[in-house]
Design a protein around this nucleic acid. Structure first.
Lengths: 215, 215, 215, 215
DNA sequence: TATGAATGAGGCTTCATTCAT
DNA sequence: CATGAATGAAGCCTCATTCAT
């Protein structure tokens, strides 16, 4: 369900402001407890407009999700471009650190993601989680393919399997790094960032030992 | 805040039924979205009764938490008793498997726990999480102390530190094992149980290498 | 509606405690908002008992009223006895001061009285107010009759009329003295007591000039 | 706390009808026992609307108070204008009679005021009473100032003190005149109105003797 | 007789959604 | 197109009263 043309015709900064404020609301309260009343009053727009734009609360939610995930994807795709040609494990490590930075810089996004995962009655839940996993898988698959082409990975590697391992490892790392700090509101503090970087390096090293070419 | 004497004077099967049904509601909907209306109508009791028993929605929640956690504790304490005298790492592995079995047998409990962790405005959140962590810490500390007495652990081991490592490792394992199956409603399927057991063995082996006595 | 025999058979200190605590509740919350739940829980008795004793919330209220007013009447009757033989205006002044003291000592009583006057749906309201006024009238009538017999009052005085005037004057004085202090919770402070006494003297003096014998 | 813009945008006759019906409810039942359910069903509007308009029960109450007091103030200010140039004591007497008439014409208003004074847990009680007292003080002060300018009052008069005396006297008179008729529902009957006017004249005469210029 | 568990009506409040202007 | 007033279901909670034990 795309947003209504009414919404698409809005000046794009207003579009962003609406989606951004909605992200804040969903991240703070989860899907069900998020209040469109609060949202429109913070935005200073009419309540009816939200329904014109997105038809529904589920519609808004879905849109916010796509918008937010797209922000992350854009950033990661750039990382992938910028590191083209480098060693595959270095690229993995840089990607992982980028993820950590994004979480630190904008915890709402990860909070939102966790809500989608753990709240029960979120609309489109299956679709949303699958969409994330798909991107994640493709992203890693890309890196690995490059790595094989450059001879940095064992030639006999089952790429699908390897992607699964890497994906799971990285995601679990991110979640774990967040979980240790749930008490303080899901926000990584600076001190921890350094520590996290060190851990990330170790993690990637482990992967290299498992998947890297022998030499 | 103990439950009111009104509740304590109830026949204990009714007590259990109420707490159990409430656990289901909280596990399914989280704190805020759990509906006391739904609960009482499922229980077939009057709305007022719940408030006589627990005073509050937070009061009910707190009680359900204590009740549920106590069930887990009782079970684990028995595991600890039953394995007394065995090798410390074997005991850790058995405990871990017991945890996995409990999750498989009664996913509501773990779901409830995750809700407490990830939902924002849960009452007593800090206290509740701390209470779990404390038990977890004490439980492992006990095993390790026995292990040191029996010479199964390095004599120079910093027990507090070791307990922290083991605790974190085990908890993360449980959470991870659940997260892989969130899509299907937080329930481990049989096939996965076998796989999980294998992983658990590997995990414990790693710990043995790190903490075990040299011989 | 007298209290049930069940209540009359109670040890009289328990009777008093129940009525006294009920007075507190009614004085603090008014009739409608007074909570029998709170009352029984403060008393530590079963909820059913209240209904056995007094049948109803109105029944309890009526009983509390009679009990409380009786306390005042007893006190004032004693004042009347103790001052027998003294000058009638002195007796009026002493009575007035006694009223002020009672208000200062136990504001709940007067608060309760004001609630009966100003709250809308109080049961038996008419009867209760009439009962107070009747006592008040008879009390003053008694003093005046003595005063006439002793030649302290003009012989041609219309006693009924005079009683009315005195009654209204005194009651208004009490209410006024309380109203000035409503903000502070209906309680006369010590400093004001002195002031009030002075005013009372002036008031009685005025009455003497209007009603007294010429000499 | 002003009423929400939602309310201000309503056609003003609807605004008045809502506030007026709410005044009736509060006057009849007091704050705590006033029922918004009853109110909305009498008004024939949806329950949610009241909360959009006033946010709260306290919010509605506060608004009703301001609205009602404003009506009184408007009327009294007009009296003050219309009598400009007349003798200060005449103006006081007219004002007092105007107050009596308003009470007779619309007893709900005074009943409401008494509820605020005597009910315990009324929100904003302090602020509301103070607001009345302030107006009252300023009103009288105005009359007295004019009186001094015109040489109708003793030149050496302490205006603040005199205002206090007049204010207290008039207010007490109003309350007393109402209290005598509480049994019949706070409504002055016609017969009493005549009597009250006579008393008012006497009262003002007393003030003149105390405060007036000597000649 | 005393108890206290059960009841359900009614209280205030929030919310997503609709629709006339 | 935007607005925002109206709606009413559903939420939590309190209370007086009843009745089986």
């Amino acid at each position: 369900m795309p947003p209504s043309s009414t919404f698409n015709n809005l000046p794009s900064d207003k579009q962003e402001r609406i989606l951004d404020e909605a992200l804040s609301e969903f991240a703070a309260k989860g899907y069900a407890r998020a209040s469109l009343n609060r949202l429109v009053s913070r935005l200073g727009i009419a309540k009816g407009s939200i329904f014109k734009y997105f038809r529904d609360k589920p519609g808004l939610f879905s849109q916010v999700f796509d918008f937010s995930v797209e922000r992350v994807k854009r950033h990661l795709r750039r990382v992938r471009e910028d590191t083209k040609g480098q060693d595959v494990f270095t690229r993995l490590e840089i990607s992982l650190l980028a993820g950590l930075e994004m979480i630190a810089a904008n915890p709402r996004l990860f909070q939102f993601y966790l809500r989608v995962m753990f709240e029960g009655d979120v609309p489109f839940r299956g679709r949303l989680l699958a969409s994330i996993r798909l991107f994640s898988h493709d992203y890693i698959m890309d890196l690995l393919t490059d790595g094989v082409a450059d001879g940095q990975l064992r030639a006999d590697l089952d790429l699908e399997m390897a992607a699964l391992v890497v994906d799971a490892t990285l995601e679990r790392f991110l979640i774990a790094s967040v979980m240790e700090h749930m008490d303080t509101g899901l926000c990584l503090k600076d001190a921890d960032a350094a520590h996290a970087a060190q851990l990330a390096a170790g993690l990637v090293d482990t992967l290299r030992r498992g998947l890297g070419a022998e030499s």
